[in-house]
Design a protein around this nucleic acid. Structure first.
Lengths: 205, 205
DNA sequence: ATAAAGAGAACGAGGGTTCGTTTTTCAAAA
DNA sequence: TTTTGAAAAACGAACCCTCGTTCTCTTTAT
């Protein structure tokens, strides 16, 4: 009967999540009050609770949102290009661009912490991380088969090191916003470029 | 006049901090109640408040504890050996060993999150990170002067990448305890070893 | 006109902190 | 050595405020 459009409902939901994101990134999950979120979203508690049955649900939705975005990135990149080197370059490009979203990064860090104590969040985060790792591992393995990467390297371990270069930069940038991404990326490429992607054929160390 | 010994006071303080560390690593800062800490320390609120005037003070003391430990590690290593490669190896060894302290790592992650919203903690953490980065940078620069490292690399950026390899592993290990440190370290060395530490004299990429 | 959507006051639990009381400790007196 | 006394140290019940959530009432859209 007097239901509002589905799009409107979806918009409200997003409005709340955006507000929550802003609050969470500034004060953290547990220091953000529902009143904070309501104020930021310019909605009353009654309205908010129509969309999320508890604060915990908002946090969970937050994980899901970040997770979907991250996975989408990898999928998109994998679809576009096929040369291993290009794929890795593109992924790096996209990932490091993500750092521009300071608020999103702050929420990510908040989620790392939440994972320590919240089983539900931990499981989602763990799965997310493992999806990314698997994607990287597959790419490395593929490149090894095609002679683009030293076959002696453990693909899983290499993938984990690559993960670290993302996670680590997110953290360092959150502590010191002056950190420059350009030189960082350049350093990684220079440091890994040599041994790693042997374009010629020099194998052994 | 009936004061108890200084050592006893110090021991009580440590007792509280240890208890807090255990609680924080399990439930996070803001979900740990003072009652939790009291119970874990087997002390009453009154006693705890004799040593720390507020929960916030316990958190601040926690940062300081972790910070001191971390700095001590670098200093110790720098004192013992002088060959650049050995120093880096030793630092890596020591740092990665630190991962065994699961509780400590959980607290670290908690601190990363706390830094987002707590100015005081952020400043301490920032300084800590920058101390470590500076130490690494100095080592790299020294190595470049001695022809052990490609002089074209930006020492600061290299230091940041090295930081990431630690931070990233802490995080990944917290999400999946099965991650093996050995292969990870080996991968880093293999990935960087080539271009990075040119023992011979091959410069250009 | 009617039911969904939103508002916002209020409730109740939880938790940081306080404070009056009890216990412990140690120096000095007996 | 034992007793004693006074202040530090510890206890723990209670205070009070904050915040998640609820519930009734109003508004809005069809």
């Amino acid at each position: 009967m007097p239901k509002v459009t589905e799009a409107h409902l979806e918009a409200r939901r997003k409005q709340i999540l955006d507000a929550a994101g802003a609050c969470f990134s500034q004060k953290g999950f547990h220091q953000t009050t529902m009143q904070d979120i309501c104020a930021q979203a310019e909605l009353s508690p009654g309205a908010v609770y129509r969309y999320f049955s508890a604060k915990e649900e908002i946090i969970a939705a937050m994980v899901d949102e970040r997770r979907r975005e991250g996975i989408a990135l990898i999928q998109a990149v994998k679809r576009e290009r096929h040369d291993t080197l290009d794929v890795l370059d593109e992924i790096a490009e996209v990932f490091f661009n993500r750092l521009e979203d300071v608020q999103g990064c702050a929420v990510d860090i908040e989620l790392w912490s939440e994972s320590q104590s919240n089983r539900r969040v931990k499981e989602l985060m763990r799965r997310d991380a493992s999806d990314v790792t698997e994607a990287f591992t597959a790419i490395i393995q593929h490149a090894q088969k095609h002679g683009e990467v030293n076959p002696d390297l453990d693909p899983l371990a290499v993938a984990q090191v690559m993960n670290s270069s993302f996670y680590g930069l997110i953290l360092q940038k959150s502590l010191d916003t002056d950190i420059e991404i350009g030189p960082y990326v350049q350093a990684i490429k220079a440091m890994m470029g040599g041994t790693f992607w042997l374009k010629g054929a020099r194998k052994g160390a």
